[in-house]
């Protein structure tokens, strides 16, 4: 009887989607109810193989979360050739800078196979921040950690590059 009532009132896909979002580092600190609010703010689209999600230079408006499939991020190099940056898979997310400010995309994204992708729009994120500040704070903290880690990596590679550069200059001398 209880099972029948649950089936009648409860959305069967809800628990599945909730579990998926909870598995992401971005939302891991959020409660079940908070995840529900995120789910209400998300939009889902199935992209087919070869479909372009965005092109370098497009205004960034949303965070993309891959539920299934693969997405390639690429960039045009100074010589005008397409350079593959990374291939992302289920559970990965990208385009998070769009949640912080409206800047042109620094790379292009293309679906490599049939992919189910969730989009969290910047405006929806602002609404979440306004109406559910704890959710916003949690997401923003994760984004800050992510950016800090990237900055650290960039600094390290810069230092490594400079060291390598001075060594090669020294070797040349």
């Amino acid at each position: 009887m209880l099972k029948l009532l649950r089936r009648f009132f409860i959305d069967a896909n809800f628990a599945k989607k909730k579990a998926f979002l909870k598995s992401l580092s971005l939302f891991q600190d959020l409660s079940g109810r908070d995840i529900g609010h995120i789910l209400a703010a998300l939009h889902t689209k199935v992209y087919h193989e070869g479909e372009v999600l965005f092109v370098e230079g497009d205004p960034g408006q949303a965070l993309f979360i891959i539920e299934s499939g693969r997405v390639e991020l690429s960039k045009i190099d100074p010589q005008g050739r397409q350079q593959r940056l990374i291939t992302l898979g289920p559970g990965d997310f990208f385009g998070e800078m769009a949640l912080l400010e409206q800047l042109p995309r620094s790379a292009s994204a293309t679906s490599l196979e049939k992919s189910t992708i969730h989009l969290l729009n910047r405006r929806k994120m602002e609404d979440l921040l306004h109406h559910h500040p704890l959710i916003g704070v949690s997401i923003m903290r994760h984004l800050a950690q992510l950016l800090s880690a990237r900055l650290r990596r960039a600094s390290q590679s810069l230092v490594a590059g400079e060291t390598l550069g001075s060594q090669s200059r020294a070797a040349a001398l």
């Binding site: 889902t44 689209k45 479909e51």
Partner: peptide, 25 residues
């Protein structure tokens, strides 16, 4: 809404959703 998103050309989904969200707010 889901059908509209699915029918929208893939590259314009992000901008379309942004427009809808702005109007919505």
């Amino acid at each position: 809404m889901q059908q509209a998103i699915q029918a929208c050309p893939s590259r314009w989904v992000e901008q379309g959703l942004h427009l809808v969200s702005e109007i919505d707010t």
